[in-house]
């Protein structure tokens, strides 16, 4: 299993690119350590802004920098940057179309036993609801690296959610990454799993088990929640008897909602949604919580078997 986290991959890209680009600026709210951005801060102190524990200011300052042609990456725990800064994200970033990439670290239930204040189970819904915002949840370090390189090439707002711990590698250096196009990991005709972020490795293992049971299983890594890649969804689910969405998010307004919305209008399919429940979650490590809520490979396999 990889020991390189997605947040580390983000820092590595920024450190590399900043060698030749003095307009890259990283802004943190006492979060440089948890965001793995301390290396950037010490390597490029003049391109690093610390705002203290002040998430509204984090986003407002980022927008101001971006409006003066800086390429801004603002990093803070996903729970706070997505909703505590929501008003600033809506107006100063999304509506004003400023070149700010919001990096939500320790997303989903990464913080485990720290509880509901630190979980971000509504961030996809909140961010996707904003006109002008793009929302990404990459699975592994290779996809995260490619995504960051792509985002550095454009000047529009985006939100990326990454988890705290290292995710098992899904890809390798040869990843066939296309910006705003889902990665099709495998094709299948009985069931198609659609996952993002940390759920992708679990879905990959589940797909293997399902294949062993004689169930032809497809797997889509839908790292791009907005713009949502409907085209790949429709192509890959044409033959499917069952479509399964899998996400580390509440039931409303996330991956499952987008899959359901797209399919119901254009290509109706039987579908189940695997996600966190709309309730206060149990305490535990993220892995324990995934198992409890049926989001690990065994949970996914069981859900598919029950549904078929």
């Amino acid at each position: 299993m990889s020991t390189i986290t997605n947040r580390q991959a983000i820092c590595d890209v920024l450190v590399e690119q900043a060698k030749n680009d003095k307009d890259i600026v990283v802004v943190c709210s006492d979060s440089r350590g948890s965001a793995s951005l301390a290396t950037f801060a010490s390597t490029y102190p003049k391109q690093f802004v610390e705002v203290g524990i002040a998430e509204q200011n984090l986003v407002g300052i980022s927008a101001g920098l971006a409006s003066c042609n800086k390429k801004v990456f603002a990093a803070s725990p996903a729970s706070f940057i997505s909703t505590r800064s929501y008003e600033q994200v809506k107006v100063d970033v999304a509506y004003s179309n400023t070149n700010v990439t919001l990096i939500g670290i320790s997303g989903g239930v990464s913080y485990g036993a720290l509880g509901m204040t630190h979980h971000s189970c509504q961030d996809f819904a909140a961010m996707c609801a904003l006109t002008g915002m793009r929302v990404y949840c990459p699975s592994d370090r290779f996809q995260t690296t490619k995504l960051m390189q792509a985002l550095l090439e454009d000047d529009k707002p985006a939100y990326i959610r990454v988890s705290r711990s290292a995710t098992e590698d899904v890809y390798d250096e040869t990843i066939d990454f296309q910006f705003d196009k889902a990665n099709v990991i495998q094709q299948g005709t009985d069931v198609v799993l659609i996952a993002c972020g940390e759920m992708v490795p679990y879905a990959k293992k589940a797909a293997k088990q399902l294949e062993a049971l004689g169930i032809s299983t497809g797997l889509i890594d839908m790292y791009c929640l907005k713009p949502f890649d409907q085209e790949t969804l429709f192509e890959q689910t044409k033959q499917a008897k069952l479509v399964v969405s899998i996400e580390e998010h509440a039931p409303q307004g996330g991956l499952g909602s987008f899959v359901a919305q797209a399919l119901s209008m254009h290509q109706p399919k039987r579908m189940i949604q695997l996600c966190l429940p709309d309730e206060h979650l149990i305490s535990g490590t993220n892995k324990e919580m995934f198992a409890y809520y049926g989001l690990d490979e065994d949970g996914i396999v069981k859900a598919v078997q029950n549904a078929l």
């Binding site: 509204q56 101001g64 971006a66 409006s67 003066c68 008003e87």
Partner: peptide, 17 residues
Amino acid sequence: GHGLSIGVGMALAAKMN
């Protein structure tokens, strides 16, 4: 309550450049 933070960002950019 948004303008002053944005202004801080703009002023910081001037200092950086």
